[in-house]
Each structure stands twice: as structure tokens, then as C-alpha cells.
Amino acid sequence: MMFDVSIITDRVEPILHGLLVTFQTWFAGVLIGLVLGLGIAVLQLFGGRWLRIPLRMFIEVIRATPFLVLLFLLYYGGPEFGLSLEPITAGILGMGVYGSVYFAEIFRGGFQSVPKGHVEAAECLGMGRWQCIWRVQLPQMLVIILPALVNMITILCKETAVLSIITIPELTMVLTGIGSETFAFVETLLVLCIGYLILIELSSRLGLWLERRVGRFLVRS
């Protein structure tokens, strides 16, 4: 087995483009997932029983379903309920929905970790529910939930590889494409592995740095 560097160096541009698509889908998916997840958690906590039960069911169903199956449902099944999406849109939406239920569970735990009295204090000072969530509960629980959030974000990074199956030209799709074109599977797959390891390592480093920054002034005595 020889390692032919030119296989990679000759195709830097498409590979970088694949990396860009990976980044795009990852960030957009994470963003949608965080917003949806926060929304689900807030509605679960404050929305009463008629919202809590359907939301709980939604969470359980999505958590039980493989990401790939969710993608198939959105991308191939979507047109049947009037949702014809480009692969990349379906991919981002799928990432968002898939991530949202995990983020929701993390946020829910975070809300429960904030002492009830801190919310009561805000109430007594006349702060609205949203002000209380945004100014008192979220910043406080961030320290506690940040590791779990970062972990989920790195999991979603790895899930972007699955997007290749619905023909989104991200890193995995581009490199396996080069592999089958040139039969240079060793080179392409190794580069692919190293690429993901770097991405994962960078994001967990970034997470640690954030944890230190946020934790600095929040260390409880």
C-alpha cells in the first residue's frame, strides 16, 4: 500500500468545498437545533399539560429514530406532504430537528438546576417570564449545561457524514467520490478520518475554552 499524496493535492479545491459544505450544514443544523430545543424545553416547562404530553412524545419518537431514517422521511417522504426540499435544505432541517430533542433535554435539565428562589426573586422584582429566562435562568445554567451542549454539537458534526447518503456534497461525499474515481481508498479515507478528528478536536478544545471563560465568575463558593 503506497500513499499517493498527489491524489489529494491535485484535488484541494473540491475537498475544501466539501469541507465548507460540512461546516455550513453543521452550523446551520446546530443553530436550528439550539433554537428549536430551547423552544421545546421552555414550552415543556411552562406550556401546561396539553403541550407537555405531545412534546414528550415528539422527543421520544425522534430520539428512537435513526438520523438517516429522519433524513429519508424529510427528503424522500417530504414531497408527499407538500415539502419538496433540496438535499441540503432537507439535510439542515433534519440535523436541526434531530439535534433539537437532545438540546431540549439538556435545556430542561438546565432549567431544573436553577434554584427556584432565583426565579422567585426575579418575579418579586416584577421581571417578565421571558426576561427571567433570558437574563436569570439561561446565563446561570450555561455553566452547568455547556459540556453537554458541546458534546451534542460534536455529535452533530459527526452526523454530517450521513448527509452524503442523500447526496449532499459534503466532505465524506467528496472524498469517497474521489476514492471510487481513482480507487485510491487508502488516501481518501485516511484524509477523511484525519479531517473529522481535527474538527472534533477543535470543537472540544473550543468548548473547554468556553467553559473556562464562562465558569470563571460563576464558581460557587
Binding site: 457524514a161 450521513v162 452524503s164 465524506t172 481508498f185 479515507l189 478520518c193 473529522y196 478528528l197 472534533i200
Partner: peptide
Amino acid sequence: FVFRGVPLLVQLLFIYYL
């Protein structure tokens, strides 16, 4: 580090092709 960091799909491709 390696087996948690590399997406499962890529690991499976490795096994299949290599």
C-alpha cells in the same frame, strides 16, 4: 479518540474498502 472521533459511516467505509 479515534473511534469516537471518526463518524461511524466513515469507519464502515474503511472496513468495506480497506
